[in-house]
Structure formats: C-alpha cells, structure tokens
Simulated assay, not measured.
Amino acid sequence: MKLCITGGGTGGHLMIAQALVEAAVKEGHEAIFIGSISGQDRKYFEDRSSFSHVYFLETTGVVNQKRFGKLKALWRVFRAFLKSREILKKHKIQATYSVGGFSAAPASFASLSKRIPLFIHEQNAVTGRLNSILKPYAKRFICAYDKNSYIKGYPVKEVFYKNARIRESIKTLIFLGGSHGAKAINDLALSVAGKLKERDIKIVHQAGESDYERVKQEYEVLGVEVELYGFTKDLESLIQRADLAVSRSGASTLWEATSNALPAFYIPYPHAAGDHQYHNARFIVENELGWCERESEDLRSKLLHILDESIIEKSKKLMEYSNSDVAQKMIKDVQESIK
C-alpha cells in the first residue's frame, strides 16, 4: 500500500504522523509526508524519518488571519492543493491519513478531488475547524475521546507503551510546557523547587527555548540542581524516567503519558482553540486518571497536595486504560478499507 500522511504545524499532530509511519513501515507499506514550511513540520521530518519522501509546501493557518491575511493564506492553500495533486499522482497514493492542523488542508482536499480515500485522526476532545469541514467526506474519523469511534485509543510511538511501568512513589518530577514552553508551568516549577529539594525529588524540566535562560538563572539563584532543557526530541526517555508530570494538556503529551502509565497534573493552555486542552484534561480527570487545574487557580498548593497523595492507584488505572497498538490498528483499517 502507498500511503500519504499529512498534517502538522505543532508537535502534537506530528507525533501522530510519526506513530502512523512507524506502524505503516512495520507492516511493509510505503508512506510519504506532505506538510508545511511553517510550523514544526521540517524540524520533525526534514531528515525523512521513516518516510520514503517528504514535502513541505508554502502554507500558513487561515483561521487566525485577518482580512487580507486570510485571503493570502487561502491563496497559498490553493497553490499547495494543486501541488499536492501532482505529488499524489506521482507516488500513486492509494489513501491519505490526515492528522490535523493547517498543514493537512492541501493534501486532504487534493485527495478528495482525486477520489483517494481520506482517513482522519482528531487528536483533541474538541474537533478542529478543518476536521469539522472534512469529516462528512472522510472514509473514517478516529478520535480517542469519542465513545463511538471505530478505533479506540490514541496512536503514540511504540516506545511509550513498551516501556510503561507502574509508579509507586515520586522520585522524579518532570515539568513539560510543550515545545514552546509555558511561563505558568515554569513559574510553578520555580516556586516549588525548594520543597522538591527538601523531599529529595529530582527535577526534569523542559522550559522552552524562549524562557530557558531566565529559568536557568532562577534555579541557580535558588541553589537547586535540575535537568533543564529548552527543547528536546528525547521526550520518551524523560517521560519513562519520571514518576509524576506537570504538563500542558496537548493531546500527544497527554496520551504519551497515559500510555506510559505516568500520572500527571495538567494545566491547560488557556488560549487553545475551542479550549480543547481543558476538555482533553477533563477527560482524564473524569476517568480518575490524573489531575487538572486552570492557570488562574492556586497551582502551587494543588501540586504540593498531589505530592502527598498515593500515585500507585492512578498509575495502575493508566496502565489498564492504555491501548498499545492503536497506530497499527489504524493502518490495518486503511489497508482493509481500500481493498
């Protein structure tokens, strides 16, 4: 089977693309990637990873643009749509999997225009604008938060569930603000650093490249030893080593932690489209798998309270809730659907 995987813009979408291409190649299929020169698509896949070919087209988001900016963005999408049609024809693509994000628009519409079956994965509890438009025309629409979804669970890289373990106590705490960092999480980490040192809890912290120097200096002033990163691609090993996470609730990070049985305290990004990060985290809380608070709440008190709780039951529930072969099921579904 020859598959096109498209979408991106942010790490969350791209991690799904990575999980899908790994599963596709493992099953003996060929996959190409169509993304954008904007966002993080190049950062993830410029070296191709497991893709046979990668393409980065000139597109930007449309929804957040104003007036002429919106028209300009739509024109770029249209040109990328025409280019995507050429790419799909060149590689004799049999199916396209959209992982969402503005990068997915050209190849998704190009696939529909060429009658190539379109499969969609929605990563968030609140369906994105593009996916809402494409959903009626898709062969399949997969979402971990939808009880009626044909495939349950969320596709993550194999390493997360392969190295899953039950956490019995908190020896290492990881702070994750996403690829760009999060000042609220960085400030929370600094506010509890002294307490964590007293409890002999090791700190691992991804602060984001823009806030890295400030955070580094603050830790030095506090005299607290920390394993600090601006950005790292080695997130899987950091998550595996941690016993508790404090994190934004972007879907990929949330499900990677879930698959690894890592309990987490989620602090949703308040300006996420449709408040989707809050709804992602509420899903975890409602299933008694973790904790969630808004930025406006007393985060320090909540975190210190969590440190006094037993995490073993949460970790056990996460282990039971985790689905190990979601990406593989998604690829097999495509193969069977296009026969």
Score class of each variant (00 low, 15 high):
184 A>M: 11
214 R>N: 02
238 L>Q: 05
210 S>Q: 12
189 A>K: 00
236 E>R: 02
222 L>I: 03
199 R>T: 05
229 Y>D: 05
230 G>Q: 02
233 K>Y: 10
183 K>A: 05
202 K>P: 07
206 Q>K: 10
224 V>C: 01
204 V>A: 10
191 S>H: 04
208 G>K: 04
223 G>V: 09
228 L>H: 13
234 D>M: 12
217 Q>M: 09
238 L>R: 08
237 S>D: 15
217 Q>S: 13
209 E>T: 07
205 H>F: 02
235 L>S: 04
208 G>I: 00
235 L>I: 14
207 A>S: 02
201 I>C: 10
238 L>V: 09
224 V>A: 03
197 K>D: 12
222 L>E: 12
205 H>M: 07
210 S>T: 05
227 E>Y: 05
184 A>R: 14
205 H>G: 09
200 D>P: 13
209 E>N: 15
204 V>E: 06
235 L>M: 15
194 G>T: 14
204 V>G: 14
204 V>Q: 08
192 V>S: 13
189 A>P: 09
230 G>E: 04
210 S>M: 14
206 Q>V: 06
196 L>F: 05
224 V>M: 02
235 L>Y: 08
226 V>C: 12
190 L>C: 11
199 R>H: 03
185 I>W: 06
238 L>K: 06
206 Q>H: 06
219 Y>A: 08
202 K>F: 14
214 R>T: 04
214 R>A: 00
184 A>C: 15
202 K>D: 07
230 G>F: 00
221 V>K: 11
215 V>G: 05
206 Q>M: 10
219 Y>C: 10
224 V>R: 08
205 H>Y: 02
203 I>P: 02
223 G>R: 04
231 F>Y: 05
231 F>C: 05
196 L>M: 01
208 G>W: 03
217 Q>P: 11
209 E>D: 12
238 L>N: 01
223 G>P: 04
233 K>I: 13
228 L>P: 04
213 E>I: 09
222 L>N: 11
202 K>M: 12
204 V>F: 13
202 K>N: 09
199 R>E: 02
225 E>S: 14
198 E>M: 13
201 I>A: 06
228 L>W: 06
212 Y>K: 13
238 L>G: 11
196 L>Y: 01
212 Y>Q: 01
204 V>N: 02
188 L>D: 03
192 V>A: 11
186 N>R: 08
192 V>K: 05
212 Y>T: 01
218 E>L: 06
230 G>V: 06
201 I>R: 12
203 I>A: 03
224 V>D: 06
235 L>R: 13
204 V>P: 11
203 I>W: 07
198 E>I: 07
225 E>P: 13
193 A>N: 07
216 K>N: 14
227 E>V: 12
227 E>D: 06
191 S>Y: 03
236 E>T: 04
229 Y>M: 05
193 A>I: 05
201 I>Y: 08
192 V>N: 03
214 R>F: 01
231 F>D: 00
232 T>V: 08
198 E>R: 09
226 V>F: 05
232 T>G: 04
190 L>I: 00
207 A>H: 10
236 E>I: 15
222 L>K: 11
